[in-house]
């Protein structure tokens, strides 16, 4: 053997599974793998042993850009006072049908 490789993990991939056609892919967990193909195979073995899916996405975890919980207020607060975006904001007399 040539130079020893230091003990470190293979890259982390996040796993998303479509449980059946018609539904969206949903995050289920993560796997380590040397490359994308191995990540798919590991995801198959770890997350679909009981027919849990018909399609798998694996995404390198480092590629995911996530919002910061500390900024949650700034991000989501502006929607809070815009209740007029919901249908229940509008008072319609009971006798009016199909609205």
């Amino acid at each position: 053997m040539s130079t020893p490789v230091p003990r470190q993990d293979w890259p982390l991939y996040e796993v998303f599974i479509r449980s059946r056609a018609g539904l969206e892919h949903k995050h289920v967990g993560s796997v380590h793998a040397a490359d994308a193909r191995m990540a798919l195979e590991h995801a198959r073995d770890v997350y679909t042993r009981r027919m849990e899916g018909v399609s798998i996405w694996v995404v390198p975890a480092v590629q995911i850009v996530a919002s910061d919980p500390a900024e949650a207020d700034a991000l989501f607060e502006p929607a809070r006072d815009k209740v007029y975006r919901h249908p229940t904001f509008y008072a319609i007399p009971d006798e009016v049908k199909n609205l």
Binding site: V5, W10, D35
Partner: peptide, 15 residues
């Protein structure tokens, strides 16, 4: 160990 190293080396080469 050698399997993990080989897989990492293969992935490196492919990249």
């Amino acid at each position: 160990q050698w399997v993990r190293e080989a897989a990492a080396a293969h992935a490196d080469k492919a990249r």
